[in-house]
C-alpha cells in the first residue's frame, strides 16, 4: 500500500535540553538497514513536548501507543473548524472509548510542521500550546523539530495515525476514521484488536488531510 513500507531504522534524539533537543538533528541509534513496516518494530524516538518534557516511545513499553500527526494550521487537525478531528470532538470520543477498552493505552500527538510553516521548534511549540488551549487538548504534543520522526514513520498527512502494540510493533497506520463521526474509527478498531489479542484489520487505510512537509 501507499504507506505500508516505512523508512528508516530506530532513531533517537539527544535530549540534553529544550534547545539542544530541537535544534540537533535526530541521530540514528543503529545502522540497521531494515525498513520499518506493518508487523515490524516501530521507529524509536525521543522528543520534547510543549512543556519541555522529554518523551520517548520506549517510555511506554508494554502499552499500546497511538500516534497522531498534528498541525496547528490544518483545518482537519489543530485548526478549529467543522472538519477538525479535535474541534468536532472525534478525538475526545476516541480517547474515551479507547480508555474503556484499554485504560493503559497512550495517545501522543506529534507535530512536524516546522518546515511547512517555516517556524522554529520553539515557535511551533508555542503555537501548539495555544492550539491545545483553544481546542481543549490535554494529551502531550511532541515537537519533531527537524521532521526526522515524520520521515521515519512516513507520516504524510495531518492527521495520520499509527498504532503500536505493547511489544513496539506497528500494527496499523493511515486514516483516523472515515471522515465523519458516524464512520468507522480505524484507530479504535486497532486498539480493540490489540487488546483482544487478535489480528488488526485493516492494517492500512489511506490517510487524508493536509500534507506533512519533511523537505
Amino acid at each position: 500500500m501507499i504507506m505500508k513500507t516505512l523508512v528508516s531504522a530506530a532513531l533517537v534524539v539527544s535530549c540534553l535540553g529544550w534547545t539542544a533537543a530541537n535544534s540537533a538533528p535526530i541521530q540514528k541509534a543503529d545502522d540497521a538497514p531494515a525498513k520499518a513496516e506493518i508487523g515490524k518494530a516501530a521507529p524509536q524516538f525521543t522528543l520534547m513536548d510543549t512543556n519541555g518534557k522529554a518523551v520517548s516511545l520506549s517510555d511506554f513499553k508494554g502499552k499500546t501507543v497511538v500516534l497522531e500527526w498534528f498541525c496547528p494550521s490544518c483545518p482537519f487537525s489543530g485548526r478549529s473548524s467543522g472538519r477538525s478531528i479535535h474541534s468536532t470532538g472525534r478525538v475526545k470520543a476516541l480517547l474515551k472509548n479507547m480508555k474503556e477498552v484499554d485504560p493503559d493505552a497512550v495517545y501522543l500527538l506529534i507535530d512536524s510542521s516546522t518546515k511547512k510553516m517555516r517556524v522554529s521548534p520553539e515557535e511551533l511549540s508555542k503555537m501548539d500550546a495555544e492550539a491545545a488551549k483553544k481546542l481543549g487538548i490535554t494529551t502531550p504534543i511532541l515537537i519533531d523539530g527537524d521532521t526526522s520522526v515524520a520521515k521515519a514513520y512516513g507520516a504524510k498527512t495531518t492527521p495520520h495515525m499509527f498504532v503500536i502494540d505493547g511489544n513496539g510493533i506497528l500494527r496499523y497506520h493511515g486514516a483516523f476514521d472515515g471522515r465523519s463521526e458516524d464512520s468507522p474509527n480505524y484507530t479504535l478498531d486497532a486498539v480493540k484488536s490489540i487488546k483482544a489479542g487478535g489480528d488488526v484489520s485493516p492494517t492500512y487505510v489511506r490517510q487524508w488531510g493536509c500534507g506533512v512537509k519533511t523537505s
Partner: peptide, 16 residues
C-alpha cells in the same frame, strides 16, 4: 464547515 477563528499562523507573533 464553519471556520471559527482566524488562521493560527496569522495570529501568533513570530510564527509562519
Amino acid at each position: 464547515p464553519s471556520i471559527l477563528f482566524p488562521m493560527v499562523l496569522a495570529t501568533l507573533p513570530g510564527t509562519a
